[in-house]
């Protein structure tokens, strides 16, 4: 019982610590100096270099959803709903969640490792001695980049995921290409895309926040950096799934 209480207390204090870290970073967003070059670097890292892995994930996810839903829906004579199922699955859920998870593994981990190494080699202390606020210099550009880049990635993933479904639908399941696309477009609602992008922005912020928090606070040399990297990916992944439920409840619950 004591162990459970201790674990709960630790989780609570870490949540508080992360919240304070994030709030501290947010207060620096509007205060100069601004580090535009660092923002652009982080933005390119988040968006351009994550594009291949997110694109492939989206295409294959769309393809799998088309196959799986056909296998299930054809039993009830509802195979014509496949384009709609693919669209809803990809745009509302799979594109933002999978893109978030992929970016957490790729960029969040790298971020934690980089900041963790900077911490254990005194580079973060060196920033302070050079009259540079480390949170403003290291964390703020990454938070902004994550929040703004992931919606762009998810927009691409939305399109490619739907195209993955279209590919399987037309090449394997016998759908007419024009009909499939028309069904998809007719069923598409702007709210779905807006929520998809809103989720992406939240997930991008969470990935950057977890990467920065765990890297910035890492301790204990190489082992500490390894632990920080693992924690960044695991915590970002859990938070993405938790916030996905919260946002879905918020926007789509009847």
């Amino acid at each position: 019982m004591a162990a459970v209480g201790r674990g709960f207390w630790l989780a609570l204090s870490m949540a508080g610590s992360i919240a304070l870290f994030g709030l501290n970073a947010l207060t620096h967003i509007v205060r100069p100096p601004f580090y535009g070059r660092l923002f652009v670097q982080a933005f390119v890292e988040f968006s351009y270099f994550s594009l291949p892995v997110v694109s492939l994930t989206a295409v294959f996810s769309g393809m799998v959803i088309a196959l799986q839903s056909y296998a299930g829906f054809s039993r009830y004579g509802a195979a014509t709903a496949i384009p709609n199922i693919v669209l809803i699955s990809v745009v509302r859920e799979l594109a933002p969640v999978l893109a978030g998870l992929m970016v957490a593994g790729r960029v969040g981990a790298a971020m934690a490792a980089e900041l963790g190494t900077m911490r254990v080699t005194d580079q973060i202390d060196a920033l302070t001695t050079l009259s540079t606020n480390p949170v403003k210099y290291l964390v703020v550009p990454r938070l902004l980049a994550g929040t703004l880049a992931l919606p762009l990635l998810v927009l691409v993933a939305d399109v490619l995921g739907v195209m993955g479904g279209w590919l399987v639908g037309t090449a394997k399941l016998g759908f007419n290409s024009h009909t499939y696309l028309m069904n998809t477009m007719d069923f598409l609602q702007s709210m779905d895309v807006v929520v998809s992008l809103a989720k992406a922005a939240v997930f991008g912020f969470l990935v950057a926040l977890m990467g920065c928090y765990h890297g910035y606070n890492s301790r204990g040399g190489a082992v500490g950096v390894g632990t920080a990297t693992t924690n960044a990916v695991v915590s970002a992944s859990i938070l993405i799934l938790a916030f996905d439920y919260v946002l879905t409840e918020l926007f789509f619950a009847q």
């Binding site: 900077m118 080699t121 580079q123 202390d125 060196a126 050079l130 540079t132």
Partner: peptide, 24 residues
């Protein structure tokens, strides 16, 4: 610093001039 604590991501000249650049 004991180990130099140079910024890995920057070339040497930017390390040296970091204080000047950071304060614009």
């Amino acid at each position: 610093f004991q180990n130099g604590a140079l910024f890995d991501s920057l070339p040497v000249w930017e390390n040296v001039a970091f204080g000047l650049l950071a304060t614009h």
